[in-house]
């Protein structure tokens, strides 16, 4: 490890990591296809994409998680910016960004003791039980993708019937807006 150069305070362009891209787009038919198509055509990888309305009536905000090094990300943002229906694009800095994901997990829980255990785990993770069936419990959990992963891992032993995740959405901290 002694010979490894330390990177302090500079962006390492070669580092492969997941980036959170926030894009403000016109709320129009076809805009999701334009964005998704661009990723496919240019060989960029989308891990997740979420779309919803924004603070402006005719605009939507997309949060895209994409993996790549600095160069790839630069190309992604530039190519996105070229789309006429895309208003603004930003690669959010992880340390100045709040990121949340919603996940619904349907767990196999037919027996009483299993149910109470599942409910306890849900509580620890600040999840809620939103549906109770004869053999299943459905948990709603919100948080960072890591936290959700951790709960899913714990619940696996009981048998997970179904998972539905929104993919993360994100916003920058403080007064900064895009």
């Amino acid at each position: 490890m002694l010979n490894q150069p330390m990177v302090v305070g500079v962006i390492d362009m070669d580092e492969q990591r997941s980036h959170i891209i926030s894009a403000l787009v016109l709320h129009r038919p076809g805009v999701l296809q334009r964005v998704a198509g661009l990723f496919t055509r240019r060989g960029f990888n989308i891990e997740t994409i979420t779309v919803g309305t924004s603070e402006q009536d005719d605009m939507a905000r997309m949060t895209i998680i994409a993996r790549g090094d600095g160069k790839v990300l630069e190309q992604i943002t530039k190519q996105l910016n070229k789309l006429i229906d895309v208003i603004k694009v930003r690669d959010l800095e992880p340390e100045n960004t709040v990121e949340r994901e919603l996940c619904l997990i349907k767990v196999h829980a037919p027996a009483e003791h299993v149910r109470s255990e599942v409910i306890q785990y849900a509580n620890i993770f600040r999840g809620r039980i939103i549906d109770v069936g004869i053999e299943t419990l459905t948990i709603e959990i919100t948080g960072t993708p890591d936290k959700i992963e951790a709960l899913i891992d714990l619940l696996r032993v009981f048998g997970i019937k179904e998972i539905a995740r929104t993919g993360p959405t994100a916003i920058s901290r403080g007064t900064k807006i895009i």
């Binding site: 076809g30 296809q33 334009r34 198509g37 661009l38 055509r41 006429i84």
Partner: peptide, 14 residues
């Protein structure tokens, strides 16, 4: 047509 020409146009309209 819109879908087919998306990757080969600067922009397209319907």
């Amino acid at each position: 047509t819109l879908g087919i020409t998306m990757p080969i146009t600067k922009h397209n309209f319907q």
